[in-house]
């Protein structure tokens, strides 16, 4: 992998701009994320944070600029190919497969690595049966590691909110990503749950050897675990730095923290 990444950079956003009709949602946004980093993206509501995520994971194609992942230009790729390339994400408003069980949610993410043909699944041929059993074992193992194994047979939609959030992260992990994008993982959580989540994020980063890029409004989480923070407002980068630097940056205070005090 090192050969394909320059100076350990895993993701590069290169002068990315996206327009919807007349609205410039993200304007000339550039960012390098190094392997193993935990980077936060903050900004007021409607600043274009989720749009940045959608560009990285292929839901949107930027009007101009490039997205480079592990040395490959993935601009305009379909979302499923980007997932296969090694980027996984969660959504701001949890988007689980509510009708499926917890285990099946995780197994969906392993589908992209399935080698057996459709016909061998339709007739339950030995190669498919073997692969399916392996996938189930891996899925259970993953649920074990994130503490959801006991709920494997529950319907995902019936889980309490906090566990749905956790399952969504587990589902993303099941795609075997190297870069994980978390969109407001602490939204709707109480302080105690947020503390648990912070520990959880740090743990999975080490255990799964991940690079993490996250959007969050909860300043305690952002300041507590992010090594580097980028601030955007109206689609434009206005600051970047360590948590300490961001907290004392006057532009950020004006645009973002100031707004919260109102």
């Amino acid at each position: 992998m090192e050969a394909r990444t320059q100076n350990g950079v895993i993701l590069t956003l290169d002068h990315v701009t996206i327009k919807f009709g007349g609205l410039v949602a993200v304007n000339d946004f550039s960012l390098d994320i190094r392997k193993g980093e935990l980077v936060g993206l903050i900004g007021p509501n409607g600043a274009g944070k989720t749009t940045v995520f959608n560009i990285v994971t292929g839901q949107y194609t930027p009007t101009s600029g490039r997205v480079i992942f592990e040395g490959r230009d993935i601009t305009g790729w379909r979302p499923d190919l980007i997932a296969a390339a090694g980027i996984a994400r969660t959504f701001q408003n949890v988007r689980l497969f509510t009708g499926l069980t917890v285990l099946d949610n995780v197994l969906v993410s392993q589908h992209l690595r399935l080698k057996s043909s459709f016909l061998s699944a339709a007739f339950q041929l030995p190669d498919y049966v073997k692969e399916d059993e392996d996938a189930r074992a891996r899925g259970m193992d993953l649920l074990e590691r994130v503490g959801l194994a006991g709920l494997a047979k529950e319907q995902a939609g019936s889980l309490p909110y906090g566990q749905q959030r956790r399952l969504e992260i587990a589902r993303a992990l099941a795609t075997n990503p190297r870069l994980l994008l978390l969109d407001e993982p602490a939204a709707g959580m109480n302080p105690e749950e947020t503390t648990q989540l912070m520990r959880f994020i740090c743990r999975i980063r080490d255990e799964f050897d991940l690079t993490i890029f996250l959007i969050e409004h909860d300043m305690r989480l952002v300041m507590g675990i992010c090594e580097r923070i980028r601030v955007i407002d109206y689609g434009v980068s206005i600051a970047e730095g360590t948590p300490q630097e961001i907290q004392s940056n006057p532009r950020v205070i004006a645009a973002y923290l100031g707004e919260e005090e109102d």
Binding site: A88, L96, T98, L100, L107, V108, H111, S116, F118, A174
Partner: peptide, 20 residues
Amino acid sequence: SYGRAMKAIRDDEIAAEAMG
């Protein structure tokens, strides 16, 4: 596994695509 992918599309097409 194919059927799970189909049900995933039924429940949330965007999420299914994002999961590969």
